[in-house]
Design a binder for these strands. Structure first.
Lengths: 168, 168
DNA sequence: CATATGGCTTTCTTTACGCAAGCGAAATAT
DNA sequence: ATATTTCGCTTGCGTAAAGAAAGCCATATG
C-alpha cells in the first residue's frame, strides 16, 4: 500500500503540498534562501540524517526547485541553488517566518528579521490583495472553478451542499 | 529515536513548519477554508484514514489552529472551525494555490480560482513588500537576528562564513 | 603514497501511515 | 419501545518511511 499522493488532484494547493509539504523539504529550502549550498552544511545545521537529506535534495532537484551543479574549484563538491521555481517560493518563507513568530514566538521580540539590504527597510506583513488593490479576507472570498475546472473543488462543494440540505 | 521536532528552534519558519508542515494538515486546513466543518466530510473528500484524520484534527485543535464545538442540532456532531490563528493562514493557502497552478498546473488554465464575492474581482499574485511599499525580491533581502536573537540563524551564518573562508 | 574530505549508499531499528474492523453515544426508523 | 443508522472516533495489524551508524568511492591535500 503506497503512501497517498496528491499530485493528480486538480488543485494548486494539493499540488504544492505534494511538492513542498514536508518538514525537511521546507527547512532545506529555507537554508538555501539563507545562502547555504552544500550537502554537509545542510546536514550539520539541520541535524538531518544523510540518507534522508540525499533523498530530499534529489527530490527537490527532480522537481525543479533546486539546481545541482558541480563545483569547478573542487571536483567532489556540489552546489545546490534555487531555480526560478524555487526562488518563487520566497513569499512562502517570508509568510511562514511571520506567522511562526506571530503565533509561536515570544511576543514582541522577533527572532529572525528580514530587511532590505540597500535601505535597511523591514518587510510588511504579507497581505492578500484583490486585483483592484483592496485587501481581502477569507470572509470576502469565494472559491470557484477556473477555466480548467476542478474535480476536487466540485466534489467539495457537492459534499457541502449535501451537508446543508441535511441540516436545515 | 523520536522523530525530530523543530519546535525549539528559534526561527519562525521552523516553528511554522513544525505546526503545519504536513500534507494532511494543510489539506484539512484548505478544506476548512472551503467551508468544510465535519469529520466525515473531511474523510470522504480527502480519502484520509479515520485514525489519521482524528489525530490531525486533535493536533490542530491543540495547537489552536482549529476550534472544535459540539453541534446544538445534533448531539453526536462536532464542527471544526478556524480560530484566529487558523484564519491567519489565509495568505498561505492563497500562495500555495497560486504557486501550485503556476508551476504544476496546465499553463494558462486555472483550476481553482479565488475571487472577491462582492465585486467578482480576482486576486493579485502574492507579493513581498517592504515597509515603504516597494516590492522585494530574495536578492534584495538580508536575514538578521531580531530583538530576541536566533541561535538557528547564528549557527547558519557561522557555517556560511567558515565555508567562504575555506574556498576563497 | 597516506590520510582526509565531500557526497552519498547500505544496513538495521524505530516510528508513523494506511486499511479494516469495531465501538459507544446519540439520532432515526419501526 | 426496540432496532437500526449515523457520527466520531479507537484498536489491531501490516507496510512504508524516518532515523542512526557505518561504509564507500572519487577527489584533494599533506
Amino acid at each position: 500500500m503506497t503512501r497517498q499522493s496528491f499530485a493528480d488532484m486538480d488543485c494548486g494547493v494539493a499540488q504544492a503540498v505534494e511538492q513542498i509539504g514536508d518538514k525537511w523539504t521546507l527547512l532545506i529550502v529555507r537554508n538555501v534562501f539563507l545562502g547555504m549550498t552544500r550537502f554537509d552544511d545542510f546536514a550539520e545545521h539541520l541535524g538531518i540524517a544523510s540518507n534522508i537529506l540525499a533523498g530530499r535534495l534529489d527530490m527537490l532537484v527532480r522537481r525543479g526547485i533546486l539546481q545541482r551543479r558541480k563545483l569547478e574549484t573542487d571536483g567532489r563538491g556540489q552546489a545546490y541553488k534555487l531555480s526560478p521555481k524555487g526562488l518563487d517560493l520566497f513569499p512562502l518563507l517570508v509568510f511562514l517566518n511571520q506567522w511562526g513568530e506571530k503565533w509561536m514566538g515570544e511576543p514582541g521580540t522577533a527572532q529572525v528579521e528580514l530587511s532590505v539590504r540597500a535601505t535597511g527597510c523591514a518587510l510588511r506583513p504579507l497581505e492578500v490583495l484583490a486585483d483592484d488593490g483592496t485587501p481581502v479576507t477569507p470572509f470576502d472570498t469565494v472559491f470557484g472553478p477556473g477555466a480548467a475546472g476542478s474535480q476536487v473543488l466540485e466534489t467539495a462543494q457537492e459534499i457541502l451542499a449535501r451537508r446543508q440540505a441535511a441540516s436545515p
